[in-house]
Design a binder for these strands. Structure first.
Length: 308
RNA sequence: GCCGGGAUAGCUCAGUUGGUAGAGCAGUGGACUGAAAAUCCACGUGUCCGCAGUUCAAUUCUGCGUCCCGGCA
C-alpha cells in the first residue's frame, strides 16, 4: 500500500506542530512547514516555530530559509515544497505538510495555475499613486477595460488585487482571469489527505491568549528588539506579522504595553477566524477533535484513516 | 444616614419634546491564484433595572423600591 502525503492544518494555536512531530516519529516522516512567517530567520518565538529540541527529533523543511527582508511568495513556497516532496518520496519518507497558511496549502495541492508574472515594483508604485490621485474606482475601471471578469469580482477598495490583475496583464498580455479559467492544468501529482485540527471557538480564543502570555514570558519582546536593532523596521512585510508589529509599536512608544498586548490578542483572534473561513471552503479536509483527544489519539486517528 | 448623579447591546456611552432605539469598540459571516500572520467586503446583537400610577400608547413623565458612583456626615 502506498501511503499518501499527509497534511495537518487548522487555525493557529491548535497544536498542529506537536501532532506533526508525533506523527512523523510514528510513521517515519519529515515535516514541510506551510507557514508564511516561519520561513524567516530570527522570527522564532512570535511564529511559534518548533524548538531546537523538537527540530532535533524530526526534520523540518521550509523554516528559517530566508532573512526577514527577503522576498517570498506562495509560488516560491510551492516550487520549493515540490522539490522536497519529490526528494522525500524517492527516499521512502512520508512528507507531512503542517501549517496554517491556507493559500500555501491550496497553491501546493489545489491545481492553481498561477501566472508566471513576477512582481514589478515600479508598475505597482505607479498604479497605487494613480489610485491616490484619481481614486480607487479609476483603477478598477482601468482593469475593467482589459479584464472585465476579474474587475466584476473585485471591490474597488481591494487595491492590491486590482494592481496585481493589471500587472499580470501588462507582463503576460493575458488577463489574470485567463489563468484562473485554466486552473487544474498543473494538478498536484501526489495523493494528499488533509486533516484539520478543530477546537471550539471559546477554547481557541483561550489558547490564543494563553500562548501570547507565554510568548511574552519566553522573551518575545527581546526577539522583536533584536530584529529592530538589526535594521528590520516595521515597514517591511515580515514585520507586519502578528505580534511583531504590535510589540514594535510598543517599543517605539506609539502605545503602552497593555494596549499592545490587547491588540496582539485581538488581531490573532481575527486571524484565526479568517483561517477558519478559508478552511471551511476546503471540503476535502477531514476534521479531528483537537479539544478532547490527546496528540497520540489524534495521530492514531490519522493513521487509521489513511489505511482505509 | 443625608444630598446629588446614574442604571439602555458583551463593554463604554448617546438618544427618544411619550409612538419599543443607535454609535464606537468587542463579536460574527464572506472573499482570497507570485505580499496571505497580508489585504478587502458585509452584518447583528436589546425584558431600554423592577413594580405601580398617569395615558389610546411609557424605555421616555410621576411615585416607590433595588443596585452603583460622587459629595457631606
Amino acid at each position: 500500500m502506498t501511503i499518501p502525503i499527509i497534511g495537518i492544518i487548522g487555525p493557529t494555536a491548535t497544536g498542529k506542530t506537536a501532532v506533526g512531530i508525533e506523527l512523523a516519529k510514528m510513521i517515519g516522516g519529515e515535516i514541510i512547514s506551510a507557514d508564511s512567517m516561519a520561513v524567516y530567520k530570527g522570527m522564532d518565538i512570535g511564529t511559534a516555530k518548533p524548538t531546537i529540541e523538537e527540530q532535533a527529533e524530526v526534520k523540518f523543511h521550509l523554516i528559517d530559509i530566508i532573512d526577514p527582508d527577503e522576498e517570498f511568495s506562495a509560488v516560491i513556497f510551492r516550487n520549493i515544497a515540490y522539490n522536497i516532496i519529490d526528494d522525500l518520496i524517492s527516499k521512502d519518507k512520508i512528507p507531512i505538510v503542517v501549517g496554517g497558511t491556507g493559500l500555501y496549502i491550496k497553491a501546493l495541492t489545489g491545481g492553481y495555475n498561477i501566472p508566471e508574472a513576477k512582481p514589478n515594483e515600479k508598475l505597482r508604485d505607479k498604479l497605487s499613486s494613480l489610485a491616490k490621485i484619481h481614486g480607487n474606482e479609476f483603477l478598477l475601471n482601468k482593469l475593467k477595460a482589459i479584464d472585465p471578469i476579474t474587475a466584476n469580482k473585485l471591490h474597488c477598495n481591494d487595491i492590491n488585487r486590482i494592481i496585481r490583475a493589471i500587472e499580470v496583464f501588462s507582463v503576460t498580455g493575458k488577463p489574470i482571469s485567463y489563468f484562473h479559467q485554466t486552473e487544474g492544468s498543473s494538478e498536484f501529482p501526489y495523493q494528499i489527505r488533509l486533516f484539520g485540527l478543530s477546537v471550539s471557538r471559546e477554547t481557541l480564543y483561550k489558547r490564543i491568549e494563553d500562548r501570547i502570555d507565554c510568548q511574552i514570558k519566553d522573551g518575545f519582546i527581546d526577539e522583536v528588539k533584536l530584529l529592530l536593532e538589526n535594521g528590520y523596521n516595521k515597514n517591511i512585510h515580515s514585520m507586519k506579522a502578528l505580534g511583531y508589529k504590535h510589540i514594535a509599536s510598543f517599543l517605539s512608544g506609539e502605545c503602552d504595553f497593555d494596549t499592545a498586548i490587547d491588540l496582539f490578542k485581538r488581531d490573532t483572534r481575527r486571524f484565526a477566524k479568517r483561517q477558519l473561513t478559508w478552511f471551511r471552503g476546503m471540503s476535502e479536509i477531514e476534521w479531528i477533535d483537537a479539544e478532547n483527544y490527546s496528540k497520540n489519539e489524534m495521530c492514531e486517528q490519522i493513521i487509521k484513516s489513511i489505511k482505509n
